[in-house]
Design a protein around this nucleic acid. Structure first.
Lengths: 204, 204
DNA sequence: ACGCTAACGGACGCCACCGTCCACTTCGCT
DNA sequence: AGCGAAGTGGACGGTGGCGTCCGTTAGCGT
């Protein structure tokens, strides 16, 4: 059933993915399918035959970032100092999402049927949860931190929209530093409000 | 030459604004003008005659929130303890924006020609800048805080999208608490990355 | 070299939103 | 009550994105 693609077809597929990556990274997911096709130098029909739904295109286009996500948490877990590992996860995650705004949308289940994304997301969250437990035990991370705070952070991070990628990354870097400050266990801590039940992002 | 509106016209104008407030608060600014007109029970022409551009409708619809913004910073300035006043500003601002997602978009110059908004925004920022200086002098606010951090926070806060207003407000509350932790002057502080030049929000 | 067929992309119809025009209605003044 | 002007909303043409159809092109196996 899944015949190997013909050479030109494979070529086009690659060019479509390149175009999608470039456009999604630069402008987010709202770019029209047509635009992707135009940039790839193919007709709309070709794009739709290769990726019948936008979701599939998005999933394929952000496969690299999804892998990067995994690498980030794995590196965090591997770090000898759990708290430092946790900080690295926060910093790199923020930067990753700042560099690819569209990725955040996809990651956040703005497209709810993204099975692959959901699985990878769950894996990353579980791993970072383990890391967080260790960091708390080591005393670096505040005891009342919960995983929801990390999701909160990623959602918040996506709110940071600047004109250029450079500016966005810079802003995100400072944001990450502030977040780490907030997460750090400190003698002068005050209790936090309860964690809200963070459902999927609203369409607004 | 601005004749007072006829009674029915005034009535319609009010209903249009009510509809706009309800829809903008519930779904953000992306709602079609038609939808506002439909909800207000008027024709599209009426809506367009009263508010030729969406910008004007938005500005009018969020006049209350804009006033609330002013009140928040004024209350903050009036507080005997500058640091506590600053915290109140952060908390109330986050809640205000969480309650009216569309307001954040407007406030953030997503519609760049919003003169009224720009002026009010500038006033609020100047006032809160003064408050921040006092809070820093009093020792509550970290010395390397800058106004850009507050804008960063508002932008980040808008990223928090939850299904219901209640959930969004709850999430925003916890976020505000974390932010305050981050802003608090502390003995165990680490230097922050530089403040990025935060231009207007990107279209993405 | 040649034909079979996968693959292509221009063109089409559909729908939603936009902003404007105009024939009809309603207010408000005398 | 009656008239002029302000006000109204249905209807229209334009634009842009969407997903699909089909006549044509070009890879690849013989």
């Amino acid at each position: 059933m899944t015949h190997p693609l013909r050479s030109d077809a494979r070529d086009n597929r690659e060019r479509i993915l390149d175009a999608a990556r470039a456009l999604f990274a630069a402008e987010g997911l709202h770019v029209p399918m047509r635009e992707v096709a135009r940039r790839a130098g193919v007709g709309p029909a070709t794009l739709y035959r290769r990726f019948p739904t936008k979701q599939e295109l998005v999933t394929e286009a952000f496969a690299d970032q999804l892998r990067a996500c995994r690498v980030i948490v794995d590196e965090g877990l591997a770090h000898p100092d759990p708290w430092r590992g946790f900080c690295l996860v926060v910093e790199k995650t923020c930067e990753l999402h700042a560099r690819h705004p569209g990725f955040t949308e996809a990651f956040m289940a703005a497209y709810p049927n993204a099975m692959d994304f959901a699985a990878a997301r769950a894996y990353s969250l579980r791993s970072v949860g383990e890391l967080a437990r260790r960091a708390q035990r080591a005393g670096g991370l505040r005891p009342d931190f919960v995983l929801g705070d990390l999701i909160l952070m990623i959602m918040a991070n996506r709110g940071i929209g600047a004109a250029s990628t450079t500016a966005r990354v810079a802003a995100s870097r400072r944001f990450a530093a502030l977040v780490i400050q907030a997460f750090r266990a400190s003698s002068e801590r005050v209790p936090l409000p309860p964690v809200p039940p963070l459902g999927p992002a609203s369409p607004g």
